[in-house]
Design a protein around this nucleic acid. Structure first.
Length: 276
DNA sequence: ACACCCTCCTGGAGGC
DNA sequence: TGCCTCCAGGAGGGTG
């Protein structure tokens, strides 16, 4: 599932392809993929606009358009953005039953939004803050420091797992990287966020940075569904220490990795290293 | 503030 | 082989 490293990988790759392209046609095959505005207005207001820039905010892809407008895309679980060069052969995604939205460009290239589970959403707005205003700090940004993390964790009294998944605190972590960060920091997912001492906060801060940097370097984690705009899988799955490794020995201490449910989320951890 | 549940979706996995 | 049930999960919503 696309979390920060996957979305960042997608954005970096797409940037090379779509910036400067002008939209000439939009197909919406699954109406509910369009969150706002109505499908009719979405199509009408997108056609003719030029893609000026593409960035990431949390797990959102943010495309700046000219004349000024913003296309935001959240891929949720299984969403993909696949770029297709102009080709005489029809692209396989053209007839793929999971292709939900297609942008056609003046250059005859296309951008496909494919989403098996149909949870992903596209938003066309005048101002991105209409959608992303409640997002917290960027773990890759300058605002993310050991100090700021400490302040955020101290504000509320809840398990670390819940806190780190909360997008209004930190924007971009999902189930995989939260579990991985907590393992690296040697902190229990159940540990209450406002009980951490400074050294523990710093360990968590370092761990989050390291886990995200590693995942980015490997172009994201592909367990099943994730693909980048060139349909390439990410290579980070082999770097995972706990996620999806229930029963396998912890690489630090050999204790079998366990799985439990925290906040209705499957949570993977080492019961020995992450005892507290 | 927090805990818990539900909804959205589909394909893959496991049971029989 | 085939059918059934369960499960995965991000985010928003609702209730207690």
């Amino acid at each position: 599932m696309p979390e920060l490293p996957e979305v960042e990988t997608i954005v970096r790759k797409l940037r090379l392809r779509v910036v400067g392209q002008r939209v000439t046609d939009v197909q919406v095959r699954w109406q509910r993929s369009i969150a706002v505005p109505s499908v009719e207005r979405f199509i009408g207001e997108l056609v003719g606009r030029e893609l000026q820039a593409i960035d990431r905010r949390g797990k959102f892809v943010v495309i700046s358009l000219l004349p000024t407008k913003y296309l935001l895309i959240h891929l949720r679980m299984t969403g993909r953005l696949i770029y297709a060069d102009a080709d005489s052969q029809p692209h396989p995604l053209e007839t793929d039953p999971h292709t939900q939205v297609v942008l056609q460009f003046a250059s005859h290239t296309k951008l496909y939004f494919r989403d098996t589970r149909k949870f992903g959403r596209l938003f066309l707005v005048d101002d991105p803050s209409e959608i992303v205003a409640d997002l917290g700090i960027e773990p890759l940004g300058a605002d993310f420091t050991s100090e700021s993390l400490g302040v955020l964790l101290g504000r509320r009294h809840r398990p670390l797992k819940v806190a780190l998944l909360d997008q209004s605190m930190l924007a971009g972590l999902g189930n995989i990287y939260v579990d991985e960060s907590l393992w690296l920091a040697r902190l229990s997912p159940c540990r209450i966020s406002d009980t951490l001492v400074m050294g523990e906060v710093d360990r968590l801060y370092q761990a989050i940075g390291q886990v995200l940097a590693c995942a980015l370097e490997h172009h994201g984690t592909t367990l099943r569904d994730y693909r980048d705009p060139d349909n390439q899988a990410g290579a980070n799955a082999s770097c995972l220490e706990v996620y999806g490794r229930t029963g396998e020995p912890c690489s630090r201490c050999g204790t079998p990795i366990e799985r439990m449910i925290v906040a209705q989320r499957s949570t993977h951890y080492c019961p020995h290293c992450q005892a507290s």
